[in-house]
Design a protein around this nucleic acid. Structure first.
Lengths: 328, 328
DNA sequence: GTGAAAGCGCTAACAC
DNA sequence: GTGTTAGCGCTTTCAC
């Protein structure tokens, strides 16, 4: 690779000192009362030769990288993809860049990634945490690294977080099935995870079912298993319990469920899922969605993190954002 | 943030020099004939206090970051999400990390990102290039930065690339509609982009249609417009031309098309799309897919890039990977 | 076998 | 107003 120009090359070529160049490049020309003429000369030259400061050296020196790390479980999940997109745009307005990482359900990878980012002097973390990350995140917090969790939080961790009103969302969704759709046997398909957002959704479901004096019918799917197994389990769940309505706790569960419904002709028509997905209006039966307010979540996440970095958060900020039902 | 331990802290605490610590940490203990006892003592201590080298300083010094940049248009597109996942896993086996960025159709952002990555001493780039990136990529090449393009390539750029057999894929897909499905009026919905992979797909379609002596019916959709507009245009295209079969050049076009078909009850049953998507088996009509060999593409991309970094590519490597049809 | 010291490119306190 | 220089944490040459 052709040797890149450094600030001292610039200084030498211009016959001035690196300090002056540095000040000018960092918009401190006025403050340091460097002459307009010189400022212009430097800027023009820098522009002409296309000099770009080495960010690595800059970060090493300043301890700031103007970069935030975003860790999600699966970036191809439409919920995470959308939120990542929003977060990136918002952070950009504050002069921050985002590097993402998809953890793909692998705790060890996730830990390594957090460590990697930390080693690279990332200024702050945005994490949709999985179980098993408690320890690493705890370590970050102990080192005063700015962190904000979203989508869920971890029970024994005192952190900033932004989550959706899961309980209430599930409550509304279930009621929608029972009252609007007049379903009488409504099941919940969720995952066998203790993640708080899943607990909230389950409790919301339970409350709604309970209030109507109906049976609670719950299936917990093993998270890591093959899609085919999931499909079969959902089929059995629906058939064995003669469900006429079903609430899926996540959009990927709904997708597996739809495959089951279609493939085995289960004839179920009343379906609600957490998280909107482009497919839900396309399929038969159409799926109503409990949609999380992605824009609001992203906005809060970025605000909180930037404030944290700037030391403006006096105490923990924990935000719960309402959901909305999209009836189909 | 609590001050992190540096290598000199370690050396000081152990009463030895930084050199020795550095050698041991970089697996040069044997080579430099450092005693086993000392090696063990250092390793144990480092482990105990949880010291991690500052990667920034390391990269600054060595000029290598063991990190690759992956730039795609839209990481929420299932094709890119899947390929990103594979690439990440493969690169990891070579000791490389991946940082992604989604360019979201914004050339300026993309340029900035490339520059940012470059400034951060990224060891190589994997890019699914959009038009307008020619210049920046040219600049990378001029600076001998290892680059490999995938999914498409840019005409006047002499680079490594890995692409699918677009022409042949479209040919097979179109033939499938004409011969297997006995469609007689088959249209192509593509985007108004000059990207080479789109040209290849169009030509494949044309060849197949031509061979059967059928009419060529092509609609180019403006890439940036609202989904609703796309839906309306596809509806009109299908209706105005009384199509009984349609080939979509990308999976997101197919998704819009499916919305049109469903919403306006177009009654079209013979549909093929480039790129597999989880939805295609769920919807009515089921969509057959011209599936790209994602695993092979990822493997080639990583191999080529690593070889390039290690100076093992004597000349440009340009690979074309066959597609496969998933009939439904 | 181990250590001293230069230097990667940058910022900023201090000097003049 | 501008320059000198220390130092961020690391690797590696050279010296002993």
């Amino acid at each position: 690779m052709k040797k890149r120009l450094s600030i001292s090359d610039i200084a030498k070529n211009l016959g001035i000192s690196v300090t002056t160049v540095s000040f000018i490049l960092n918009d401190k020309a006025k403050e340091k009362r460097i002459s307009d003429a010189l400022t212009k000369r430097v800027l023009d030259y820098v522009n002409k030769v296309g000099y770009k400061p080495n960010q690595l050296a800059k970060s090493l020196r300043t301890g700031k990288s103007k970069t935030l790390g975003l860790l999600v479980e699966d970036i191809s999940n439409s919920f995470f993809a959308n939120i990542a997109d929003q977060i990136e745009k918002l952070a950009y307005d504050f002069g921050y860049h985002i590097v993402y990482c998809s953890m793909n359900n692998d705790v060890n990878r996730a830990k390594e990634l957090i460590q990697l980012f930390y080693d690279r002097q990332i200024d702050g973390f945005i994490i949709a945490p999985t179980e098993g990350l408690t320890e690493v995140i705890q370590k970050l917090l102990k080192n005063n690294v700015p962190v904000v969790l979203f989508d869920r939080h971890l029970e024994d961790l005192e952190t900033n977080f932004v989550i959706s009103e899961n309980h209430n969302g599930a409550l509304i969704g279930t009621r929608f099935l029972l009252e609007e759709k007049k379903a009488s046997r409504v099941g919940l398909v969720t995952i066998n995870s203790n993640q708080l957002q899943m607990r909230g959704r389950m409790e919301g479901y339970m409350e709604a079912v309970d209030a109507m004096g109906k049976d609670m019918l719950i299936k917990k799917i093993v998270r890591a298993q093959a899609d085919e197994d999931t499909i079969l389990q959902i089929r059995d769940f629906i058939q064995d319990n003669r469900l006429d309505g079903v609430l899926f706790a996540t959009n990927y569960l709904a997708l597996s469920g739809l495959k089951a419904i279609k493939r085995y002709d289960l004839g179920i028509e009343k379906v609600v899922s957490f998280d909107e997905n482009a497919v839900f209006s396309l399929v038969e039966p159409a799926v109503s969605a409990i949609s999380q307010n992605i824009h609001e979540i992203a906005r809060k996440v970025v605000d909180i993190l930037i404030n944290e970095i700037n030391g403006k958060n006096k105490e923990l900020v924990q935000v719960v954002v309402p959901c909305e039902i999209i009836a189909r």
